[in-house]
Design a protein around this nucleic acid. Structure first.
Lengths: 277, 277
DNA sequence: GTATGTTCTTCTCAAGTTGAGATGAACTCA
DNA sequence: TGAGTTCATCTCAACTTGAGAAGAACATAC
């Protein structure tokens, strides 16, 4: 439900003061992932101000609520996520570097005390990006960079191992851990691995995406067979890459993303036995 | 990121007025599902006041923010969901009727204009419940009932077919449609179908849950084989039900939920071909 | 140039899983 | 008592997966 006036609607809208309610702020945060040099990277900004000044955090910021009248500056949640990504990293939206980015909602984090200043509800988003240029700090960020996920020492329980140098602010380690787990799962049953690649890519490149996100090597032959056998996953371009693999081998064929939205049958990752219980 | 003062933290916390920000309200809504008479039902309340007075809505309400100091009455999002479920339906939490309910976050809905009064961000939750007593209206609800999902005429695009009598308020048709799709997916790779059953259940009862949620009949023999072959899904009790099926047949054996958190291999639903593209 | 080692792509084969149907025993209801 | 239903298991063909092998195409070092 929603706040419930004991009057009729017209009267209510006129005499209504939203400030009668407890103040809550709503922010969006973005877990933006990409592959660089075969390793999974996340976009982080370094905080310039308290709290957590000097620590690293996910890019994000306030949702423009637009006031009680929800005027022109009121923005939808995904729009807020794209705007924050652009503002704090210098990456341009719409047709620019952020054009091919896949964005989806990850989850909402609202424990009391997660921000020391006031009650803040954060709607986290997950973005899959092909290789992008280095970001430039902007907005409230003192710095911004693609950081290898492995360097953050994340545990499954959403914490950072002691001794990790780059500490994450707020509950962002938890959010990032959830984002990574979501990404690993999404690769199984959706073709979103192609969102990490350019417009055209080779099967070995696609395999490198899976290996980077899942953190394990895959059987090249079986992966190749599987990708080609799932309807709508990729479609051939009829061309081949300019050159062979880094250390030899024939020129791989080039593919585009197909029109499937779900992989059927799914591409199951091996060795999940540990996670089951 | 989060609101960023241009001062140090102590000074900031002292001189801070949260009402400087655009007002946003945060609510929780709950898609509570159960199986009754072999059909999937959702818990709805009838609105007693404007807006959308007389229409049906998901149970929900404000998150208690606790003010700037986030005092004792500040509550976490899942707690708010349980509280609203209890308040508006008369179902008692903790050990009571809500004891065996599975609750998870579904998603957050925050489009400008989704509530005509002010900017409202709603964190939707999804609950799976075994058969529960009829709810009693409470709080702001004029009525509360378990409603067969089929009677709501939902389309895949999150709208209600014209002619449907029970109209849903706000964007609750969209939220419910998303919740149903999530539930259908969860049954594939988690053992949560058991959350719709009592503490002990038979394989045919479990199959009825799948059939109700997926809306299609399953091959009884293959389902039986599959459930017993997935490690940790169910464990036998060594006992059988008091009597056979409704119209005859031997007494089925009783099982309990096992300790698996994921089904591996998954129990894939047939005929998803249409959804793929 | 040539040799060496790497990589892409396809193939083979055994093991496992799924879908569809059949069967017999146990049970309810008329 | 008889008819029809349901539980539980089995069978068999079709499909999918995991592991390894092999040939051709290529990069690199000598």
């Amino acid at each position: 439900m929603t706040p419930e006036p004991r009057r009729d609607e017209a009267e209510f809208l006129a005499g209504y003061d939203p400030r009668d309610y407890d103040p809550v702020a709503v922010t969006v945060d973005v877990v933006a992932l990409t592959i660089r040099d075969g390793a999974l990277h996340v976009l982080l900004v370094r905080r310039g101000h308290a709290p957590y000044a000097g620590m690293w955090a996910l890019p994000g910021g306030f949702v423009q609520a637009g006031g009680p009248l929800q005027g022109d500056d009121a923005e939808d949640l995904p729009d807020a996520a794209v705007r924050e990504l652009a503002e704090e990293t210098g990456l341009s939206a719409e047709g620019g570097a952020l054009g091919r980015v896949h964005l989806e909602q990850l989850g909402t984090y609202g424990s009391p005390g997660r921000d020391p200043r006031m009650r803040i509800i954060s709607v986290a988003h997950l973005a899959f990006a092909p290789e992008l240029p280095d970001p430039e700090a902007g907005g409230d960020a003192a710095d911004a960079a693609w950081v290898p996920v492995d360097a953050l020492g994340l545990t499954e329980s959403g914490e950072q191992r002691p001794g990790t140098t780059r500490r994450l602010a707020f509950d962002h380690a938890r959010i990032l851990a959830d984002g990574l787990e979501r990404a690993r799962g999404k690769l199984e049953y959706t073709p979103l691995a192609t969102a990490f690649c350019g417009a055209e890519f080779t099967i070995p490149e696609l395999r490198a995406v899976y290996e980077a996100v899942w953190g394990e090597e895959l059987h090249a032959g079986n992966f190749h067979r599987k990708v080609l056998s799932v309807p709508g996953f990729v479609e051939g371009t009829g061309t081949t890459a300019d050159r062979g693999g880094r250390r030899g081998g024939p020129r791989p064929r080039l593919y585009r993303a197909g029109d499937a939205r779900l992989l059927h049958p799914a591409l199951l990752r091996p060795s999940r036995e540990e996670e089951i219980r």
